[in-house]
């Protein structure tokens, strides 16, 4: 049995120090996770029955995280706080939707500490997983908690193509998908750029194509001058994760839409209206395609049927804006 050392928060001062810390932990076979703002990682650490392992701070990214607005694209550092993004006047002018969505996340206090990277990589949520340890004691561990069953989908198996149906709750992701943003990730092996549309996986545990030692360092948004609108369904106007989030951009041939909050990954659709059909029938067909893209489970305050209905309502509403 591996002799694990006591869990610790590592505070590397730069990327080189971080890579050597990661190498050291990997060599020792120790579990670790990265921490930036902490608003997602810390509650998970508290609600987990098992020790989550070491934490490696990404605070060193703060020095290099900034908003750079170029002629053809916008660069956003991943350590920018959501409040910085929401209150930046130059960004408001260049790409208003990003600031607007950032101001809709969590509460004012959370926006002061939560980061852009953290919001994109936020853990998928399920009503059975995001519970206190006290509540979790009343049922067996689910797949996401290292157990052998899914409480939400009876009969689901660990080796199913999609083993976990925890839903994606990142508010910023739908907007980034519609804007065709690129994500820059860095590791010991170097840097790579991935399209946000190819970044996510339809699984509540794996979530995305990020390797364990890779860090999201920046987001590149092309300046396409699209008019993107976003609307989210929540019980309260503040604090809540989206029960449904829809970002939509109209174009000459049809519209692009991205959805979060109901499926296990943020979904992106590009609809081109066929000639000869009326707008309303084309819209109905598009909405049907979105709602039938993946099953919706009872893992939120709002019932699945209501959320599916609201998805259609929101698409229509945003299209007419």
């Amino acid at each position: 049995m591996m002799n694990h050392s006591k869990t610790k928060l590592f505070m590397p001062g730069n990327f080189e120090e971080m890579t050597s810390t990661v190498k050291y932990l990997e060599k020792k076979g120790e579990k670790f996770q990265f921490i930036a703002g902490g608003s997602d990682v810390v509650p998970r650490m508290k609600d987990s029955k098992k020790n989550q392992g070491h934490m490696v701070s990404l605070k060193f990214l703060k020095k290099t995280s900034s908003i750079t607005i170029k002629e053809d694209e916008i660069h956003l550092g991943s350590f920018l706080s959501l409040d910085q993004i929401a209150s930046d006047s130059a960004l408001k002018e260049a790409c208003p939707i990003i600031g607007k969505v950032a101001s809709m996340v969590g509460s004012p206090q959370i926006r002061n500490q939560a980061t852009l990277g953290g919001n994109i990589l936020v853990d998928n949520r399920c009503v059975f997983f995001n519970q206190s340890v006290f509540n979790k004691d009343f049922h067996h561990n689910c797949f996401k908690d290292g157990g052998s069953q899914c409480i939400l989908v009876k009969g689901a198996k660990a080796n199913d193509a999609i083993s976990c149906r925890a839903r994606s709750v990142s508010d910023l992701t739908p907007a980034l998908l519609v804007l065709d943003a690129k994500l820059v990730v860095k590791s010991i092996r170097g840097e790579r750029t991935i399209s946000a549309r190819e970044f996510f996986k339809e699984d509540g545990i794996a979530k995305n194509n990020l390797e364990t030692d890779e860090v999201l360092i920046s987001v590149i948004i092309p300046r396409l001058h699209k008019s993107v609108h976003y609307k989210k369904l929540t019980v309260r106007k503040t604090l809540d994760f989206p029960s449904l989030g829809v970002a939509l951009a109209k174009n000459e041939q049809g519209f692009e839409v991205a959805v979060c909050g109901i499926f296990s990954m943020p979904m992106y659709f590009n609809f081109v209206f066929a000639g000869g059909k009326s707008l309303s029938s084309s819209m109905e067909e598009s909405i049907k395609n979105v709602t039938s893209a993946a099953p919706v489970f009872k893992q939120d305050f709002f019932p699945p049927k209501y959320r599916k209905e609201m998805l259609g309502v929101y698409i229509k509403e945003l299209f007419e804006r």
């Binding site: 505070m11 921490i35 902490g38 810390v42 605070k59 409040d83 206090q109 959370i110 002061n112 500490q113």
Partner: peptide
């Protein structure tokens, strides 16, 4: 809530060492 460098944040979500 406490003020960290003048801005309110949630102390239960921040590690002290951070």
């Amino acid at each position: 809530s406490v003020l960290v460098d003048g801005k309110p944040i949630l102390a239960c979500l921040v590690l002290a060492k951070f």
